[in-house]
Amino acid sequence: MGMPNRKYADGEVVMGRWPGSVLYYEVQVTSYDDASHLYTVKYKDGTELALKESDIRLQS
């Protein structure tokens, strides 16, 4: 078993793309699913969504 190939840690605050949009919002990573390679993130309004790594970026 190798290390999970994840870029962002639980609790890390990053920018997540809103689905169907080009806009990124501040989100907190809450979990990562090794099987689906999706991150569960929480937006400031409390919305929780699963995002692909390509829809997440570090805060500038």
Rank of each mutant, 00 (worst) to 15 (best):
M1C: 15
G2P: 15
G2F: 05
G2Y: 04
G2W: 07
G2A: 07
M3T: 15
M3H: 15
M3E: 14
M3Y: 14
M3I: 13
P4A: 12
P4Q: 12
P4E: 12
P4V: 12
P4H: 12
N5M: 11
N5L: 12
N5T: 13
N5H: 06
N5P: 15
R6I: 04
R6M: 02
R6W: 03
K7A: 07
K7S: 06
K7N: 05
K7M: 09
K7I: 10
K7H: 06
K7T: 08
Y8L: 03
A9L: 11
A9N: 09
A9Q: 14
D10A: 06
D10H: 05
G11H: 05
G11I: 02
G11C: 07
G11F: 06
E12N: 05
E12Y: 04
E12H: 05
E12F: 04
E12T: 10
E12C: 08
V13F: 14
V13N: 07
V13Y: 14
V13C: 10
V13H: 09
V14D: 01
V14A: 05
V14M: 02
V14S: 01
M15K: 04
M15N: 04
M15L: 13
M15W: 15
M15H: 07
G16R: 01
G16D: 00
G16E: 00
G16C: 13
G16Y: 07
R17F: 03
R17C: 03
W18P: 10
W18D: 03
W18N: 04
W18S: 06
W18Q: 07
W18I: 09
P19W: 06
P19D: 04
P19Y: 06
P19E: 05
G20T: 04
G20W: 06
G20S: 05
S21M: 06
S21Y: 04
V22E: 14
V22A: 14
L23V: 12
L23G: 09
Y24H: 04
Y24C: 04
Y24V: 02
Y24Q: 02
Y24T: 02
Y24W: 15
Y25T: 08
Y25V: 14
Y25S: 07
Y25G: 04
Y25D: 05
Y25H: 09
E26Q: 12
E26G: 03
E26R: 09
E26P: 11
E26H: 08
V27F: 13
V27W: 03
V27T: 03
Q28F: 08
Q28P: 00
Q28M: 14
V29A: 00
V29H: 00
V29L: 02
V29M: 01
T30R: 08
T30N: 07
T30E: 10
T30V: 15
S31M: 07
S31N: 11
S31D: 09
Y32C: 02
Y32M: 01
Y32L: 01
Y32P: 00
D33W: 02
D33H: 05
D34V: 09
D34T: 09
D34I: 09
D34K: 08
A35K: 13
S36H: 08
S36E: 07
H37S: 12
H37Y: 10
H37N: 13
H37Q: 15
L38N: 06
L38F: 10
L38T: 12
L38W: 07
L38Y: 11
Y39A: 00
Y39H: 00
T40M: 13
T40S: 08
T40I: 12
V41G: 02
V41C: 10
V41T: 02
V41K: 00
V41S: 01
V41A: 05
V41R: 00
K42G: 02
K42Q: 10
K42E: 06
K42F: 07
K42W: 06
Y43P: 01
Y43A: 13
Y43M: 15
Y43F: 13
K44I: 10
K44S: 11
K44A: 11
K44C: 11
K44L: 10
K44N: 07
D45K: 02
D45G: 05
D45R: 02
G46V: 03
G46F: 04
T47S: 08
T47K: 08
E48I: 15
E48C: 12
E48N: 07
E48F: 14
E48W: 07
L49D: 03
L49W: 15
L49M: 11
L49C: 09
A50Y: 15
A50I: 14
L51C: 04
L51M: 09
L51D: 00
L51Y: 02
K52D: 09
K52Q: 11
K52M: 11
K52W: 08
K52H: 12
K52A: 12
K52G: 09
E53T: 04
E53W: 05
E53K: 02
E53Q: 06
S54F: 08
S54D: 12
S54K: 09
S54R: 08
S54Y: 08
S54H: 10
S54N: 10
S54Q: 11
D55V: 02
D55H: 07
D55G: 03
I56T: 02
R57W: 11
L58I: 13
L58Y: 13
L58E: 14
L58Q: 13
L58C: 12
L58V: 13
Q59E: 10
S60Y: 11
S60W: 11
S60C: 14
S60M: 12
S60P: 13
